[in-house]
Design a protein around this nucleic acid. Sequence first.
DNA 1: TTGAAAGCGCTAACAA
DNA 2: TTGTTAGCGCTTTCAA
Lengths: 352, 352
Amino acid sequence: MTMPKERGTRRAGTHVTSVDVAALAGVSQAAVSRAFTPGAPIAAETRRRILDAARKLSYVPNSIASSLTTRRTNMFAVILGNMNNPFYVKLFKILLERLQSQGRQLLTFTVEPGANSDDALMRVLRYQVDGIILTSAQLSTRMTALCHDRGIPIVLLNRYIPGSDVSGVRCDNIGGGRLIAKAFLQAGARHFAVIKGDPRGSTSQDRLRGFAEQILEEGIARRNILELEGQSIYEGARLAVLRAFQGKGQPVPDAVFGINDTMAMGAMDALRGEMGLRVPEDVMVAGFDDIDEGAHWPYRLTTVRQPIEAMIDEALALLQPDAPGRPIEPGIDRTIPGELIWRDTIPRPKHG
Amino acid sequence: MTMPKERGTRRAGTHVTSVDVAALAGVSQAAVSRAFTPGAPIAAETRRRILDAARKLSYVPNSIASSLTTRRTNMFAVILGNMNNPFYVKLFKILLERLQSQGRQLLTFTVEPGANSDDALMRVLRYQVDGIILTSAQLSTRMTALCHDRGIPIVLLNRYIPGSDVSGVRCDNIGGGRLIAKAFLQAGARHFAVIKGDPRGSTSQDRLRGFAEQILEEGIARRNILELEGQSIYEGARLAVLRAFQGKGQPVPDAVFGINDTMAMGAMDALRGEMGLRVPEDVMVAGFDDIDEGAHWPYRLTTVRQPIEAMIDEALALLQPDAPGRPIEPGIDRTIPGELIWRDTIPRPKHG
DNA sequence: TTGAAAGCGCTAACAA
DNA sequence: TTGTTAGCGCTTTCAA
């Protein structure tokens, strides 16, 4: 079945391996390996000859094969939750660019929002990735234990699993929620609606919690904060607002807080488009994340900016790509503060 | 250096391999391989025992190792161009979901818009992917030849390289351009602006070409079509419009055609936001792609819908994931028609 | 249906 | 600095 290999021929055949290159260059196969390994002990002249031969044969080293011995694939996995939210797309984009510039590859997976990531993780394990970035939170401790056992670091991005030993990096969501509440309060709002995302997710919970705490501290009753379910997406928020306030619904509150920008934009479109209200004159609105679209002319959304770059830097540091063998420290939870971005959906405070 | 392996112990150690499972189950290592290979010749009872042992040891098969012999990694590569355009994000999302549901993995790369994909392709080759999907077009024939030589199929999505032997799937961009032109014309437009994307890309060129042809056929002079450069992005289009028409600029045309929706939206925001014009009363606008955001209340953009799902189906078919060894047919170029989506940025034709 | 044995393409001791 | 020699964890003949 297997044909005799035509070594040393110029024919860029189906499978050129280091053996072929070695034959053509008149060196051992190991020398070829060294020629392609930065810092390996090899004479400059030998190296040149090998690289020459390699070029002639259009040889491309097989990373898959090498990872079998080195135990490092140079591949990282990212498991994406809600790709309908531009925030996660931006996160993914920056992550991809970072990793790529470091010469690492990214194996990508999606998981339905709210669905369990275990399946994806199982597949990831088969591919021997060097690290896992999760932006979707539902996963079993059994699974994380599996990863830890084989020394594969996991880091949660913009997520947090209470009581878990999985490390994570996130924005200070509680603080961010407070920032929005303060802005609404100084503008005179007294009745609020919050459009929640995944009610089981820490992100949504924390933002709401900070928001509510700040308002309660102002002496306003909790029942003045109406909670709506927006499923983390534009359309969910739009419909939630319509269902709650349109027609003979409840009175429209003074201020609507979208737990993320996409939902805030969905709410705005319902409020202004379908219900004919003005923002911020009739209703104030605020979001969270600071996605690019929120800054566009139709919205000019006041929001909390998540420090994406810093979060990714931290996450990659937690993945400790430099110290592969190092034991994984359990449950580091890094929190980075967000920044209030004033735009036009909340009246500005008087200057000074 | 290498410790003796503790075979058969329950300890889910650092590296459980099929050998460990075999030892615990009291079978040969080959049997373990068979137990995990669908359709392999193995007794049901043996299989059960092996799976049992595997579970006890939390054994996960190493796909990397197996791909060394099978010559199939089950990984596909996608090379993404402009991730700032939601259209490509949507394309990516659907592609990812499709591949994932087929049990295939996706290795993702980005390339600066307009930059050469050769670097990314080189890395892709090292990882022995089973196929490559490109949404970014600049690549050398040398590179595609390399891929073809080693039997890795490439398919261009929403791209076309004239005279190349790389297969591709795209929307009928010329026809789509004509659809927009017809819509503008029936609404009475006589002076036009087109906001182009990458001037070297076939996509932008074809849409413009179809658009212009239709208009010329109507007897309108070519000089009535002003061409602007929007770099394929929202902000580029916004600034291009401002630069051209704001203040003492040229007179605002009757109709603006954004070569893609993002740019059309950028143009709309410039026109209405900064310049205070009304759409469609003062200027008509149209886009191309039909991204979700274009349907939202502030825009209600008339556009041409790209048949994303069909395009991806075709692309995956061209990648012939079923017939790995089959020689790659050269340069198939599939074109699927787009569909005009009437919304509110061009006055509707009178009914009947 | 099973096991033994020979690789897949590469890296990493070790010796020369 | 080089070549030789074992593997890495798996699949796949080939015999039994």
